[in-house]
Measured scan of single mutants.
Amino acid sequence: MLDDRARMEAAKKEKVEQILAEFQLQEEDLKKVMRRMQKEMDRGLRLETHEEASVKMLPTYVRSTPEGSEVGDFLSLDLGGTNFRVMLVKVGEGEEGQWSVKTKHQMYSIPEDAMTGTAEMLFDYISECISDFLDKHQMKHKKLPLGFTFSFPVRHEDIDKGILLNWTKGFKASGAEGNNVVGLLRDAIKRRGDFEMDVVAMVNDTVATMISCYYEDHQCEVGMIVGTGCNACYMEEMQNVELVEGDEGRMCVNTEWGAFGDSGELDEFLLEYDRLVDESSANPGQQLYEKLIGGKYMGELVRLVLLRLVDENLLFHGEASEQLRTRGAFETRFVSQVESDTGDRKQIYNILSTLGLRPSTTDCDIVRRACESVSTRAAHMCSAGLAGVINRMRESRSEDVMRITVGVDGSVYKLHPSFKERFHASVRRLTPSCEITFIESEEGSGRGAALVSAVACKKACMLGQ
């Protein structure tokens, strides 16, 4: 009897593995994704193909990295998701002549009506938060230079001027797309009239992360975010950046690689679950690469896999709870928690219980395998993109072996128990001629924006502006 049951459990697990095998990517698959990513990057950089390229390769006008001589107080704003952060950054000489960066910050959550109302409502709310922060720190009387981390696709015309191309991540505030974001912020500050600010720089969160990590390690020339969304930036040779005049030196390019796949480059790798996630998203047909990796989508992918296993009578005796059938019910943090389970399955059992399920031991094991399959594919897909960037940098610099540091931020990278190990191992397999160091950014977005502002202020002083 026991043997029969054991055989049935083994057969069930084997069927589960057959279904989950769809998520496995072979090294040849990853090399294919990497080569296609490089081709799209090239198209994004070139003037004649930029418009139709899915990977936009947006110039950021960040050319210099901090040298350690900029000092002063800077205000930093960070808008990239449902939370908005205001930070005071003091850049100065530390002990023994070292450079020191001290920060104080406060988080504000953005109400739904500000995210989806008008641009005026959104930026009025942001300036209200700045006003509140300055009151708390008794700094209303000071006109501070301000660095703005704005983590949406922007076409820069200068370091302090950028046109919002399109909202992502659930934002829909009308009247912002096609307009200068810094102008919208300046107008809102003017409307309030109770404080003055000098907006000197606007950067993407990947750029802010790279600059913040450069402060720790001067070989950091790539910034990457794996959180709600997924994106990367890197220092490109100016001669390859056709959208900006000049051939000397390097400029940081914001790849906006989340949109890779929007022209069909990933079609052969998309599964039924991916198509369902895409169809029910706020932007169907867009940001397809990001939807395979980002935390906004990972939990939902797992939920759809679990429903398939229920329908195949391989999980929960073929019956799903009402909660499990509800879109968004299986949160991405559950994926991390399930994979963090120590082996007694308590954590998995508790999560499934909150979803109205009474799982068996085998159910718990199957749910864990589903989570591992989805998150491992995410790590491997992400590795193909980064390997594409790094191999490109090595080739354009004609280096036999390139040493490089990548600064990384984002909740999936930082909080998932195995993502970074799987990701690092896969990147290294795909970049055999590179020695890569990964560092995690601390308060990256805010500190990085302030350091970019410090560079901009120093330049302005040198130019006598």
Rank of each mutant, 00 (worst) to 15 (best):
L122E: 04
N313E: 09
G385L: 09
E216P: 01
K459I: 05
E395D: 12
E95A: 09
D409F: 05
E237W: 02
E52T: 14
K31D: 08
E435I: 13
T361M: 05
V305K: 00
E256I: 13
V207K: 00
N254H: 10
A460C: 07
Q347C: 07
Q347D: 09
V16S: 08
T362G: 07
R191L: 13
Q38H: 03
M197F: 04
V207W: 00
G117R: 11
G343C: 02
A173S: 06
L314I: 14
N254W: 11
T354M: 04
E93P: 09
M107G: 06
N179M: 05
G193S: 06
D78N: 13
L315A: 11
A456P: 05
K458F: 15
N391Q: 09
E331R: 14
Q26P: 13
M197D: 00
M8Q: 09
Q465C: 12
G178F: 15
T149H: 14
V406K: 00
L324Y: 04
F150H: 15
C252K: 00
G170W: 10
R392A: 10
T405F: 01
F171T: 12
K102S: 12
E256W: 12
L134F: 05
S375N: 03
T168R: 10
F316Q: 07
K142P: 03
F316C: 13
A208D: 00
N83T: 15
L47C: 06
F438E: 02
G68W: 03
Y61C: 06
T149E: 12
S76L: 01
K296Y: 11
P145H: 00
K143N: 01
I110T: 11
M107T: 07
Q106K: 04
E435W: 13
N391F: 05
T361P: 10
G464P: 14
L165E: 09
L386R: 00
L430T: 02
E399W: 12
I293C: 14
D158N: 15
R325A: 10
G183S: 08
L355E: 01
G295D: 13
D344L: 06
C213A: 01
L357K: 05
G183V: 04
V335M: 09
E290P: 08
F74R: 00
A282G: 09
F330L: 09
E248T: 06
F133C: 06
D365K: 01
V181N: 14
G328C: 15
L45W: 02
